[in-house]
Design a protein around this nucleic acid. Structure first.
Lengths: 73, 73
DNA sequence: CTATTTTAGACAAAAAACGTCTAAAACGTG
DNA sequence: CACGTTTTAGACGTTTTTTGTCTAAAATAG
């Protein structure tokens, strides 16, 4: 879930994985793995991504749909 | 941040760490470590906790304050 | 087509997570 | 207060996950 969202958001902004990596203070390879969901996001990574892309953690983690409805209620 | 929130929410519901552990399919020791922030939350744990406590990931991760204002905007 | 940029596989090393066992702390009841 | 029960967290070792580097493949641009 979060992989697809990260890739979408990144491409919307026209950023490369390396650019996002820079913002997250990690390697490009790590961002690649986030998008592929080969590794799990750390809470720090989640928080950084929310700030970078101005989105909620709920959106990033797929806890809300496109309409913004929360799936955890 | 998330440690304090988890502990608060758990106690509001009058649950023991063992009870939460059961819901998350992990050991009581792991829930203890989440509350102490000795280990990081996995995305799965975050999602399970949001469903269990009916709160947003933003709240759990401290991306919003008590008034609900988002800190990532 | 060629050069440049971007992405992802393989590998090894380092870090993080996890459960178990157990002691300490907190809680309740007589 | 004592006693038993429940709850929480330390220590330890093991397993799993994450990470970077190096590099090749894929995509993009000129």
């Amino acid at each position: 879930m979060y992989g697809k969202r990260i890739k979408e958001l990144r491409e919307e902004k026209g950023l490369s994985q390396a650019a996002v990596a820079c913002a997250l203070q990690c390697s490009q390879r790590t961002v690649s793995r986030y998008e592929l969901e080969q590794i799990d996001l750390s809470t720090e990574a989640i928080i950084s991504l929310c700030h970078l892309f101005k989105v909620s953690a709920d959106y990033l983690l797929g806890l809300e749909d496109e309409t913004g409805a929360k799936t955890y209620r």
